[in-house]
Amino acid sequence: MTGATASLRKTLGGLPGVDQVGLEARAAGLGTRSIKTTAKAWAIDLAISMVDLTTLEGADTPGKVRALANKAMRPDPTDPSCPSAAAVCVYPDMVKIAKDTLGDSGLHVASVATAFPSGRAALDIKLADTRDAVEAGADEIDMVIDRGAFLTGNYELVFDEIVATKEACARPDGSHAHLKVIFETGELQTYDNVRKASWLSMMAGADFIKTSTGKVQPAATLPVTLVMLEAVRDFRAETGRQVGVKPAGGIKTSKDAIKYLVMVNEIVGEDWLDPDWFRFGASSLLNDLLLQRQKIATGHYSGPDYVTLD
């Protein structure tokens, strides 16, 4: 074991443990908040503006990505007061298509990279993958950590890969693409691991921490996101640096999205109630948010043919 690994182990081992029963009870308790009328309308608009509209399929084509980007810009074409989504999230080879479609709309292009979703490739390939996406115009990079290394206790390797990927996010003008670090919490399994991964990533320079790729079950859950929110809260208190949180995968309904927003509000506070600091990685969620939004505006439910399928 190298000195750096030993030191990381000591630091991460010194974090307070997470009691599973208590954590899950807290998340369930927050889930009983009743968000109605004006509060619901506000929360739904905020949730729409936080969606990273995602397509990560082998079958993705320029046509599919263009459609998705248009949907992100105008989620409800019948209602100009509807906010746009935060970003579209695609594979690196689709970044240019997405970027061209979004134009100067202000929406971001997020690209997964680093041999997403498994991360099982050599570091130089992962970094090339990252540079490729940044050069194509990605505003945000969603990298995966090496879960195998993490589970064997090789925290140094995980740390170094995050640092290297962050360097690969640099652009010639000195700016850098925002780095989201995906844990794949369904593979880390324990809440203690999620807390350790959160601190490890933030110490290595993550701008955002993200639960899942969407390719492994379970993906995002309320308790997992709660642990990550506590981590970003405590990290800011200790270092002064604010880090964003992105639950991704499995969030399908407005009701679920609102539960997440309640949790953000009560665990880390309103500084994070902003698309710059909290995102939903989702695809079908957006249409449910739009249906609920129309219901609030008109008083009745329309139906799946009144939202666009892209």
Partner: peptide, 10 residues
């Protein structure tokens, strides 16, 4: 003024 004001839910 808080951002996320919960409406009454009696």
């Amino acid at each position: 003024m808080t951002k996320f004001e919960y409406a009454p839910a009696p």
